[in-house]
Design a protein around this nucleic acid. Sequence first.
DNA 1: CGTGTGACCGGCG
DNA 2: ACGCCGGCCACAC
Length: 120
Amino acid sequence: MKKANTNKQDKEYSFFQDVFEVVIQIPKGRVTSYGAIANFLGTKMSARMVGWAMNASHQSELSIPAHRVVNRNGMLTGKNHFATPNLMESLLKKEGIVVENDCVVAFKNIFWDPLKELSL
DNA sequence: CGTGTGACCGGCG
DNA sequence: ACGCCGGCCACAC
């Protein structure tokens, strides 16, 4: 047994868990972008990982409000990965967020930056 | 152990 | 203004 390969094995928490923790803390009626979360984690360049983590959110036992996470354009890019494509939009509307043409209206207004909010 | 992929972002032509 | 391309990290096969 050698191979130690990824030493992060030592950590029980995975990159996903970190992302979930942040997403869960998103206030109701607010939205954030993958890049913002990635930046908060320190990997702004790898915003893709955030999206990837969201993919695992379905398997996560925790309830991950992935519908509050959109791309920097405010577009519901990940809606296709939900149980139903219209689920993401429905959830957002329920929270008072206006969605039009799969795009969050006033995205900048309700944008929630973990770096600014959590980093206080 | 190598390769591929992925719900992104930013830069360049 | 628009479209294409590379990059970056983590996970699955």
